[in-house]
Design a protein around this nucleic acid. Structure first.
Lengths: 210, 210
DNA sequence: GCATTATTTTAATCATCATTAAAATTATTG
DNA sequence: CAATAATTTTAATGATGATTAAAATAATGC
């Protein structure tokens, strides 16, 4: 049995990680493509040239597979956000960087990122953890908007709604993007601008709220 | 057994329709809230004060329940689009109307609209039908953008990507909106502007494509 | 090469719901 | 009210697919 202990990273552990990571990507692709209920463990296993039972060497059960996919998705988002914050010059520019970095991950070789459609069917601890990660990410994005408003690069707006709008658009990408490299290039190129274009525009009739 | 025949609409048929419609709303709420696999027919039935087996009087099986939810979702979208087209003055204004109308339905008493997350697990005919409805709706939206570009109310942009961005944002709403009326008012108020704000902005470096 | 550990498979088992059939109840109509 | 049709329930049944245990294979370290 795989030790799973932390401590010093040995060859075996790292091989285990790599394989499990491959598994998570395969699972994410299946889930995005065929839905959660529509993908059996056999579907995932087939993609890896394994038998369904073999997956249980890497995860306790199907729920945990989903959970790990979601944690990975959250990680990717958080890293993109951090990198943008580290490099960004002002609010708006940081938002644009974040969008680009995150999208690059989603459509690039970080492989498919799972859409979080099944959070409610996770077990309570996992559900809470994923929800918390999700909330934190939203909050970080809203903070970016706030920063932009403060430095004048972004016009005043409703943080919550603007955040929901932009993040929703982002989250939906895996629904229609399925690996075509030409499309990938286009999304990376177009989306950051499209999604941030409205941020600079003067808002006609609403002042900043909340 | 319910006749289900078309022809003249009698009292029984209409009662049947009303009840089935209630059922679809209950199902949509469950699916959005707990995911497809996470909702059993008993969950839906409980919401209606019925027993799970009773649902089979209205639908052939669970797949058909999903299918009907999706058709209803498509109907709602199509009606919002049509109404906007009928009333809109120019491209941009029609886009705004469409967004408002569609969102009003989603968060209003048309009850929850199901997120189309499980299209792939529909049976082939149903899947094709729903995909076709979906494609048509996207095409209609892109046509709206085109109209706006033609009449000068919308700046040139990539139709496909811009459409994906805006529709994605819209489609994601049921993921975070769960019935709070205060939030409902805010979405209706804010989203159409937020989502259309970028359409008028001059695009820095990209000409219209395709 | 041997011993040990890691990984995968084979072959059941098990649980959960979806589904069905028949009976019971409720509504409608003449 | 009687008769018929509509609706719902009760009580099985069944299928799918997740899960498990034990055995087999492959890899690794000495």
């Amino acid at each position: 049995m795989q030790s799973q202990s932390s401590g010093t990273e040995n060859a075996i552990d790292s091989r285990f990680r790599v394989k499990r990571d491959r598994m998570l990507k395969a699972a994410a692709r299946c889930f995005n493509l065929k839905g959660y209920s529509g993908t059996s463990l056999k579907d995932v296993a087939d993609l890896l040239g394994l038998t369904d039972a073999a997956l249980y060497y890497y995860v306790r059960n199907k729920q945990e597979l989903v959970y790990l996919c979601y944690v990975r998705a959250a990680d990717v988002g958080r890293e993109a956000m951090q990198r943008a914050i580290d490099e960004g010059e002002n609010g708006l520019e940081t938002v644009r960087r974040y969008l680009r970095y995150h999208i690059e991950c989603m459509v690039g070789d970080q492989g498919p990122i799972a859409i979080m459609s099944e959070i409610p069917s996770l077990k309570p601890e996992h559900r809470e953890e994923v929800l918390e990660l999700s909330r934190r990410h939203s909050a970080a994005f809203e903070a970016l908007l706030e920063r932009g408003i403060a430095d004048g690069s972004i016009a005043p707006c409703d943080l919550r709604m603007t955040g929901n709008a932009i993040m929703g658009s982002l989250n939906w990408i895996p629904k229609w993007f399925h690996g075509d490299p030409a499309v990938a290039a286009k999304v990376v190129e177009e989306f950051p601008r499209i999604l941030s274009a409205g941020l600079t525009a003067r808002q006609q009739d609403s002042a900043q709220r909340k």
